[in-house]
Simulated assay, not measured.
Amino acid sequence: MPFLIYATILASLVAYTINANFLSAMRSTSEDVAEVTFAQTESASFRLAAGVRAYFSEHEALPLSLASLQSSHAFHPPAMKGVQWSVGQGVYEDERVGVWACLQGDLSLEQSRGLNKAVSRFAQDITGVGSQCGLAPVSQPRVLAGNHAITIWLALEPEPLEEPPGEGEDPPVEPPEPPQVEMLLHR
């Protein structure tokens, strides 16, 4: 009889240990997906922003697509299961033309957690979430699991230069600086 009690206790402990280890492995895998998604999203966003700056320096224009950046100014962002990156142009806050990066596709719960962590580290006025790319930014975006698009506004075209001096006005002492792209995404 005591042997049966000890065997039952031992079997229960083994089963508990196996279940605890299995649940721990599932939890760490879920956390790993969220952390990898966060790291890839943050890194890709900053590298794309650097590519936009380099592209503008060379062409004095914003890139129209990811393909125009890939030629010599940026890498292809890492692929994540079920989602893809794109780059495009649009009008930012009804004022100026800007360029955005977008991550779109069917997001898992773990991916949405990682994206929320990345988005929370960006400035509040540069990220839009919805069903399509190029959406206007919202103040506190929330990424959910499912089919979504996360738009991250990277840069705006330069402000127009001041008008040249009119007749009878003195020209500026120093020549104007070349236009610079206004970066929205920065560390």
Rank of each mutant, 00 (worst) to 15 (best):
M1W: 11
S72Y: 01
L115Y: 10
S131P: 01
Q132F: 07
H76Q: 15
W153V: 00
S120W: 01
S57Y: 09
M26R: 15
H186L: 09
V181A: 07
L154D: 05
Q89N: 12
G51A: 06
G98Y: 01
L107R: 01
N19E: 15
A39D: 12
A123H: 11
Q111W: 05
V99L: 09
L64A: 15
A67I: 04
H186K: 08
V173D: 14
S72K: 06
F38E: 03
K81C: 05
A118I: 01
S28W: 12
S24Q: 15
G134I: 03
Y6G: 13
A145N: 07
A20V: 08
E58H: 14
L156D: 04
L103V: 01
D32P: 05
Y92M: 04
H59G: 05
V181Q: 01
C102K: 01
H59I: 03
E58A: 12
F22P: 02
G146S: 12
P160W: 07
S65Q: 04
G105A: 00
T127G: 07
L185Q: 02
A155W: 02
R113H: 13
E169N: 06
V91L: 14
T37K: 00
C133R: 02
G82W: 02
G98W: 02
A11T: 06
A136V: 13
Q111M: 14
L161R: 13
Q180F: 03
G130T: 03
L156K: 02
Y16S: 15
G146Y: 09
A11D: 03
L107K: 00
G114M: 07
Y92G: 05
Q132R: 14
S43C: 05
A50L: 09
P175Q: 09
S112N: 07
E35W: 05
L185D: 06
V129E: 00
P171I: 08
E157K: 10
D94E: 13
S65Y: 07
S108C: 08
P78T: 08
E169K: 10
G114H: 03
I5D: 10
E31L: 10
T37R: 00
G98C: 07
E169L: 09
P164N: 10
G146T: 08
